[in-house]
Every structure is written in C-alpha cells, then in structure tokens.
C-alpha cells in the first residue's frame, strides 16, 4: 500500500503541524527550519544533525518500524518532517534523539543508520532498548528514541488514512476523516 505526501499531510493535520498548504510554501522557499534545505548533513555523529541527516535517519528507521506492505516511505517521511522540523522544542527533541541513534550506529556498527542493513538497523534499535521502552520526551535515551523517533513515525503512519486502512480503519483516531465512515459497513 503506497504512502503518499497526502498521507503525510493528513498525518500532520492529525498530530499538530501546519498541513498541506504550508508544506508547499515551506518547500518552495526552502524554509525547512533550523537546518534549512541547504543545511549540511551532520556526519560526525556528535553534533545536532541538520535536516537532511534527520531525514535520512528517520527514513531509514521507518523502513524498520513500518510494515513491509507500505511503500512510498521517502515522500511520506519527508512530508512529515517538513511539518515537524519547525524550530520548536519538539523538533529539537527529534534532532537530539536522531543524533543518539546515529552515534550508536557509528559506535556499534561503524556506519550511519541509513547505511546499515535492515537486520542491523533492527538490531541497533532493539539494542538501544527502543522496542520495549515506554516513550518519554524527558527520559532515558531509549525512552527518548522511542518518543521522538519510533513513536513519531508510528503515530504518523497509524493516524493516516493509508496506515489506518492497513489495520482496517480508514478514519483512524486523530485523522479528520469525516463523520460518515462510522456509518458504513465492512467492505
């Protein structure tokens, strides 16, 4: 099932960013938040990553935490981050958590997370504890990675129409999918 930028816009409308129109404006002007479209990707794993580095890492993590059945991850995650990397404290939390994932990837696997094999990415996130941690924006590394990286991506997917349809609900909680679908029977 193909995820689209429309799904990303729907997810943003659900979870708190400006949505489709502003997405277009932001892309057109290159105003991508602190890093900006022209920002240098962070490469040493110690500093706060710029937008492109965050996008690469988040897309890579999405390939692990999203089911096989979804495609179109690049555009979806890109669209999501267009809205979420907006200079807010939350955006800084995403950057900081991505930096920790990158740091662990380089230390333990000798490569950025985007370059790891699917199995190594899965192992990395589990070794960080992000699978069993409860999300917490102010918690341990595992809890922050769960909050800002893993759950950020899962929230966006499963609050979107395409993600909902994977489970069997085309209007999932958080998505403004109208007041008609609840009346329809199963298809």
């Amino acid at each position: 099932m193909e995820l689209t930028r429309r799904d990303a816009a729907a997810a943003l409308a659900a979870i708190g960013a400006t949505g489709g129109v502003a997405l277009g404006v932001r892309r057109a002007t290159g105003d991508g938040g602190r890093g900006g479209a022209e920002a240098e990707p962070a490469r040493d794993g110690d500093g706060t990553p710029g937008d492109e580095a965050v996008r690469e890492a988040m897309t890579a993590v999405a390939r692990t935490v999203y089911p096989e059945a979804v495609s179109g991850l690049d555009a979806f995650v890109d669209g999501l981050l267009d809205g979420r990397l907006d200079g807010s404290a939350h955006a800084e939390g995403i950057r900081a958590a991505v930096a920790e994932v990158e740091s662990a990837a380089r230390s333990w696997y000798g490569a950025p997370v985007a370059d790891l094999s699917p199995a190594d990415r899965d192992d990395l996130l589990r070794e960080m504890g992000a699978d069993v941690a409860e999300e917490n924006p102010d918690g341990t590394t595992a809890e922050r990675v769960r909050y800002y990286v893993v759950n950020e991506l899962l929230l966006a997917l499963y609050a979107s129409p395409t993600g909902g349809e994977l489970v069997g609900i085309e209007n999932p909680q958080g998505h403004a999918g109208g007041a008609e679908s609840y009346r329809r029977g199963p298809r």
């Binding site: 692990t64 935490v65 999203y66 089911p67 096989e68 059945a69 899965d122 996130l125 699978d131 069993v132 409860e134 999300e135 893993v150 759950n151 899962l154 929230l155 997917l157 499963y158 609050a159 993600g163 909902g164 994977l166 489970v167 609900i169 999932p172 909680q173 958080g174």
Partner: peptide, 18 residues
Amino acid sequence: PSPVETALSGDDWGDPLL
C-alpha cells in the same frame, strides 16, 4: 482498542506490530 494508541505502546514494530 484504537489502533494508533495500541501501536505506540507495543513492544514490537514492522510486520509483527501490524
């Protein structure tokens, strides 16, 4: 359960979560 809420508190991801 609401699927999106369940997804955020599980202990797995990918196909097993779905």
